[in-house]
C-alpha cells in the first residue's frame, strides 16, 4: 500500500518528478493563502483569523504531499516559494518560512511521512512559518504609527493600535495551533477516505 501512494521515483533524494508534484500542490497552498490574505484586507479581524482558516484548509494538501513525495525537502521548498511569491508583501515571510520549513522537515522525517502526532507538529511548524505575514506590522509599528498619526484622526489610530499588541500575536499563534490540529485531523480523515 505504501508503494501505491508514494510517487513512482524511488531514489532517496528529490527528483524533478517530485519537484513538479511539490510545485503543483504548493501552488494550491499558496493560492489558498493568497485568497485569504486578500479577504483579510476587509478588516484586521479577518486578517488576524486568516491563518486559522488557512491551516484547516491546507491540512489535506499537506497530508497529500507528505504521502506522495516521502522525501526530505518538499515542505522547505514550498516555504521558500511561498516566501518568494509574497515577497511583495514582506521579505520576513522568507525568513520565518525557512525556519518553519526546516523544523517541519525535521518533524515530518521523524514521523516517517505518516500522519500522527509528529506529522501534526510538522504541520504546525509549517503554518507558523507564515507568521512573517504579521511581523512587519509589529516591527515597523512605530514608523507606521507616527505616519498614520499625521494623516488620520488620533482616536482612529489608537483604535487600530489597540489591536497590534503582544496579546493579539499570542492569540494568533494560539489560533494557528488549534487550526493546525484541526487541519491535520481533517487531512488524515480525507486521506483515509478518498486517497488510499
Amino acid at each position: 500500500m505504501e508503494k501505491s501512494i508514494s510517487s513512482s521515483s524511488s531514489s532517496k533524494k528529490m527528483t524533478s518528478r517530485d519537484a513538479v508534484m511539490v510545485g503543483a500542490l504548493g501552488a494550491l497552498i499558496i493560492a489558498i493563502r493568497f485568497v485569504f490574505m486578500l479577504l483579510g484586507g476587509l478588516s484586521p479581524y479577518a486578517w488576524f483569523s486568516s491563518h486559522f482558516i488557512d491551516a484547516i484548509l491546507i491540512g489535506p494538501i499537506f497530508m497529500l504531499i507528505m504521502s506522495k513525495v516521502r522525501k526530505p525537502g518538499a515542505f522547505l521548498i514550498i516555504a521558500v516559494i511561498t516566501g518568494f511569491v509574497f515577497l511583495a508583501a514582506t521579505w520576513m515571510i522568507v525568513a520565518t518560512g525557512i525556519i518553519g520549513g526546516l523544523l517541519c522537515e525535521f518533524f515530518v522525517k521523524r514521523a516517517n511521512y505518516r500522519p500522527g502526532f509528529l506529522a501534526t507538529m510538522g504541520f504546525l511548524c509549517f503554518n507558523l512559518g507564515f507568521l512573517g505575514d504579521f511581523l512587519p506590522l509589529y516591527i515597523t509599528r512605530d514608523e507606521y504609527y507616527a505616519a498614520s498619526m499625521s494623516t488620520m484622526p488620533p482616536a482612529y489610530v489608537d483604535a487600530l493600535y489597540q489591536l497590534v499588541t503582544p496579546e493579539t500575536l499570542i492569540a494568533i499563534i494560539a489560533s494557528i495551533v488549534v487550526g493546525s490540529i484541526l487541519g491535520a485531523l481533517f487531512g488524515s480523515r480525507m486521506m483515509r477516505r478518498h486517497f488510499n
Partner: peptide
C-alpha cells in the same frame, strides 16, 4: 538548486490551471 527551480516553475504554471 535545480529542484527548487523546477518546483517554482511548476508553481507558476499551476496558478492559472488551479483557477
Amino acid at each position: 538548486p535545480n529542484t527548487l527551480i523546477v518546483a517554482l516553475t511548476a508553481t507558476l504554471r499551476f496558478f492559472p490551471a488551479i483557477r
